[in-house]
Design a binder for these strands. Structure first.
Length: 943
RNA sequence: GCCCGGGUGGCGGAAUGGUUUACGCAGAGGACUUAAAAUCCUUGACCCGAAAGGGUUUGUGGGUUCGACUCCCACCCUGGGCACCA
């Protein structure tokens, strides 16, 4: 018996495939009829010195299986691989090891390539791309120039995030929790002149296009959140005794009547302009100085108490109330968002409340919640839930506390919609009951919130089918006595609530619970939700959502949209990256390097360490820096910063199919045929950085007329993370699994399949050596099945068709774990199977275990490769079994199982069922009320 | 705080509203072997029971349904992302 020897087999076929260039597609050739170009892309790796780890193997295998599947389905699959070799990562490593990044990178790439070749993937090595090669970064620089020409690249002085350890500025996206993404040192704020890409110009398109692309929903959500569109209004506040005005951005214009003060960010330009008017300038200046010195982390520390200084002598006018309100500077307001100034509404914003409490500023409540019974949302046309709930809410004017005392159900028909607010009966009834149950007598009616408000609410939520059903009756305690709530009283009310309302803290909604409990406990808290306006002049009683628009109009404000997204800061004061192709001339100013002079080569220098002065190490290389102005030929200096690594990887997929073009970054016809990418697979960790930048670059290239599409990847799927004992693998933890020893011990096929079998591809899994023997056994058994050469037996028609269907569907949805499971089931029956079954098994298995299936296929005497076989089709009719195990239930409980013909009729099945001893026992003498029959599945006898 | 996931045997994980636990690992029993490894066969949620059989069970509590891991409401736990973004 020939034993399965993966090492030998894999070495043999790897060689043969390379010799035959088995996976190279001719990108120029028009695809044969019926075959479509299929660009199967995976995120290219950063070639680390440690080499490939199982996380890479996982990602690439999952992607490769997809590519192989599409190839067997008759597409021309282009599956390239390359290296993201520029960047801080490589450079930091070289610094630590005392080597040069160039030499180090070359070494790493060599090692990586060797490892990747073992994987058995479809990689077309003739088109590998390395971002640190001049022939690649020449075009990265070209891309910069195009963006510059289009006005999408600009230089500006701005407060930027600076990593003191990496000694460079960072993009907004690379700062995590106030720390550097790379080295975790605390990021500082610095005011520097830097290059930016105007990604914000595309904010709206980046957001809208998400609807039309087929990406994992999680990734889309992450992008949406990052772009952070928020709709609101800009409202102008006049400054008393001044021609100056303050513009404030708010998402809650409905709370304008509650704006009791204003706050500037310390960097706000008006602070300086108002200097003459500010009476306590010394104090203000001191605060400004302090704010400047704080790091980003210190400023955004949530536990930190809010600080600020009033601008004495400066008063703003609330356009709604016409009241004069104080103005502060405080660092809890960010200069970089909105207008850098806010109207503070302490009653409805937690941060404002915290500040107002500390500085004893007035708090005016302008929105109060309504309570909604979500348990039985009434739907028009359904009688049984048509009813109306009345809350009696008692407000204590002394401390503003609200007690929700009553929950009474009325028949909906008694109170026709719309008339409720004026319906005295409700008020009287509520008052009587509240008085009875609380003993409070001096109740003053504040308001009845009824049908109208709720109808508006539902209209605003496009839920017109619902009728209004909640009414709140608000009382003030007019008298002075009995205002304090004792512990016993609280308990009594709580019991009352539970008893009468049938509402428990468990089934209340979040909002209800939060408000109710915080009121009881006397905690101050701001109500952030929607509700009904109070203390808002003529807008009292209006739905807060509807009031937004009305109040903006009233205050002559403007609707405005703001984004969280910032422009992409791409300058890096480092060595290992593409120099930014810009020349500064005293006469001509900023001059882009002419395209014919590209690449601006990165000079080979000995000392490439970051300087920390805010200048790149290149600034000390005179031969690099000093140059001629392309325009006037006079003396000029080069830009010495390099660009962000993310720019390298933002366009690499354009280069892959065009590597042979030396005079252009990509060829129009080639791109037209092969792009956008058919399927992109990569890690979820790039959901916002890389994937947002690639989309931006693609949109920009389209608008500049270079390409005809605006989204780079038709489909994107994120794979999960491979952990070790539940922890993320990292060098610092020392738990990185190197796949090499497993390749040697079990072979690549086994490693591939084991990883895919761990769990759903999108969710990753935990690497342990335990389960790998299961896959090893499976492959050995399959191997022996073929080599044992027993004569053909049965034909597993039904199972074969079922398996083909299952595997095909699972592959389409990247559900590799269940595909493998069904292949195992199929192979477990294979001792009864004939030649056709064995061949089908090999073909279905080929994308997972390319080496072994190829070997066995050739052992079966086939000349052609198993990977060139067409993907098998299944016959729907054959998928169904003839006899089926019917489940027999009595009152929904399984009491028997019977094997019957698949097409057994309801009557037949019921008769069979009732004859069963088991069933008779359960049915007994009871009358059969009803029989539920699901064809081909079950009979449920209800008695 | 906000936004996404997830919670099913000893473990990884399967389950169009229809037998919970497919497939695999570990375990138990057996065969082969002087023996072990490897391999093959059998078994496999929990409780009661000798067995037949019965009861319980998909984080918790409710609801809808003939029937719920699956749908609805609320809660708890947990992994991840974002966060003084007005």
């Amino acid at each position: 018996m020939a034993n399965y020897n993966p090492q030998q087999i894999e070495a043999k076929w790897a060689k043969a495939w390379e010799r035959k260039k088995a996976w190279q597609v001719d990108l120029k050739k028009v695809s044969a009829k019926g075959r479509k170009p299929y660009y199967n892309l995976m995120m290219f790796p950063y070639p680390s010195a440690e080499g490939l780890h199982v996380g890479n193997v996982y990602a690439f295998t999952g992607s490769d299986i997809h590519g192989r599947f599409e190839r067997m389905r008759g597409n021309d699959v282009f599956e390239p691989m390359g290296f993201d070799s520029f960047g801080i990562h490589s450079e930091n490593f070289a610094i630590k090891m005392g080597t040069h990044p160039k030499a180090q990178t070359a070494k790493n790439i060599k090692h990586f390539t060797e490892q990747l070749k073992q994987l058995g993937a479809l990689f077309d090595w003739s088109r590998a791309v390395t971002t640190s090669e001049p022939e690649y970064y020449k075009w990265t620089q070209w891309l910069f120039l195009q963006l510059y020409k289009a006005g999408l690249a600009y230089k500006a002085k701005a407060p930027v995030d600076w990593c003191p350890s990496c000694k460079t500025v960072l993009a907004n996206e690379q700062v995590i929790d106030g720390k550097c993404e790379r080295c975790s040192s605390q990021v500082m704020q610095k005011e520097l002149e830097q290059w930016f890409f105007r990604i914000t110009k595309y904010a709206d398109k980046l957001l809208k296009n998400l609807e039309k692309i087929d990406w994992s929903e999680r990734t889309k959500i992450a992008q949406r959140n990052w772009i952070g569109r928020s709709e609101g209004a800009q409202i102008e506040f006049k400054i008393q005794n001044s021609s100056l005005k303050i513009n404030a951005f708010t998402t809650r214009p409905d709370t304008l009547f509650g704006a009791t003060y204003m706050v500037f960010a310390p960097e706000h330009e008006l602070v300086e302009k108002l200097k003459s008017q500010i009476k306590n300038w010394g104090e203000v200046q001191k605060y400004l100085e302090e704010a400047k010195q704080k790091s980003e982390l210190e400023r955004t520390e949530l536990t930190k108490e809010k600080t600020g200084v009033e601008l004495k002598g400066v008063r703003a006018v609330n356009p709604a109330t016409k009241e004069n309100i104080p103005v502060f500077i405080a660092d809890y307001v960010l200069a970089s968002y909105g207008t850098g100034a806010i109207m503070a509404v302490p009653a409805h914003d937690e941060r404002d409340l915290e500040f107002a409490t500390k500085y004893k500023l007035p708090i005016t409540e302008v929105v109060i919640p309504w309570l909604i019974d979500k348990r039985n949302p009434p739907v028009a046309g359904k009688k049984k839930v048509e009813r109306r709930n009345v809350h009696a809410i008692v407000r204590n004017p002394k401390d503003g506390k609200i007690l929700c005392l009553k929950w009474k159900k009325f028949n909906w028909l008694t109170f026709p919609m719309g008339g409720v607010e004026e319906n005295e009966d409700i008020v009287k009834a509520a008052r009587r009951e509240v008085e009875e149950e609380t003993g409070y007598t001096n109740l003053k009616l504040v308001r009845v919130l009824g049908g109208q408000v709720c109808a508006e609410y539902f209209a605003a939520h496009k839920d017109e089918n619902r009728v209004s059903y909640t009414t709140a009756v608000l009382f003030d305690l007019a008298g002075e006595d009995r205002v304090e709530v004792s512990e016993e009283e609280k308990e009594r009310h709580e019991a009352l609530w539970l008893e009468k309302s049938q509402i428990t803290p468990q089934n209340m909604t979040h909002t209800e619970t939060g408000i109710w409990l915080s009121r009881w406990e006397g905690k101050s808290g701001s109500y952030l939700g929607e509700g009904v306006l109070i203390n808002s002049g003529k807008f009292n009683g209006m739905n807060s959502k509807l009031a937004m628009g009305e109040i903006v109009k009233f205050a002559k404000g403007q609707k405005k949209v703001n984004y969280h997204l910032r422009d992409w800061l791409i300058s890096r004061q480092r060595y290992w990256g593409p120099p930014i192709p810009i020349i500064y001339c005293k006469k001509c100013g900023t001059v882009p390097v002419p395209e014919k002079d590209l690449p601006v080569k990165l000079p080979e220098v000995k000392d490439f360490r970051p300087t920390g002065t805010g200048k790149s190490p290149l600034a000390s290389v005179a031969s690099f820096m000093n140059t001629k102005c392309p325009k006037c030929k006079g003396k000029a200096e080069r830009e010495t910063d390099v660009s962000d690594t993310f720019l390298d990887s933002a366009w690499y997929f354009f280069r892959y199919p065009c590597t042979e073009f030396k005079n252009k970054p990509f060829d129009k016809a080639r791109v037209k045929k092969w792009l956008p990418v058919s399927m992109y697979i990569g890690g979820q960790e790039h959901a916002v950085l890389h994937l947002l930048y690639t989309r931006f670059i693609t949109m920009a290239l389209k608008d500049m007329g270079h390409i005809a599409f605006d989204e780079p990847f038709k489909k994107f799927r994120a794979h999960g993370l491979i952990t070790k004992e539940g922890a993320k693998m990292s060098k610092s933890k020392g738990n990185v699994v190197n796949p090499d020893e497993y390749f040697v011990k079990y072979g690549a096929d086994t490693v591939r399949m084991y990883l895919m079998f761990l769990g759903p591809f999108a969710e990753g899994g935990d690497w342990s050596d335990k389960g790998i023997v299961g896959i090893c056994r499976f492959l050995s058994r399959a191997f022996e099945l073929v080599t044992a050469k027993t004569e053909a037996k049965n034909d597993l028609v039904s199972l074969r068709n079922k398996t083909i269907k299952k595997v095909t569907e699972d592959l389409e949805n990247l559900r590799y774990n269940t595909a493998i499971a069904s292949l195992m089931e199929y192979s477990n029956e294979m001792k009864d199977g004939g030649k056709k079954d064995i061949e089908t098994l090999l073909i279905l298995l080929a994308p997972f275990a390319p080496y072994m299936t190829e070997e066995l296929w050739s052992k079966l005497g086939h000349k052609d490769s198993v990977h060139n076989q067409p993907w098998p089709k299944y016959d729907v009719k054959q998928v169904k079994a003839e006899r089926i195990r019917f489940i027999i239930q009595v009152n929904g409980k399984v009491r028997d199982v019977m094997e019957l013909a698949a097409d057994t009729s309801e009557k037949q099945a019921t008769d069979f069922a009732l004859k069963s001893r088991n069933i008779r026992k359960w049915v007994g003498n009871s009358k059969v009320k009803r029989v539920v029959f699901v064809p081909g599945r079950l009979v449920n006898i209800v008695v």
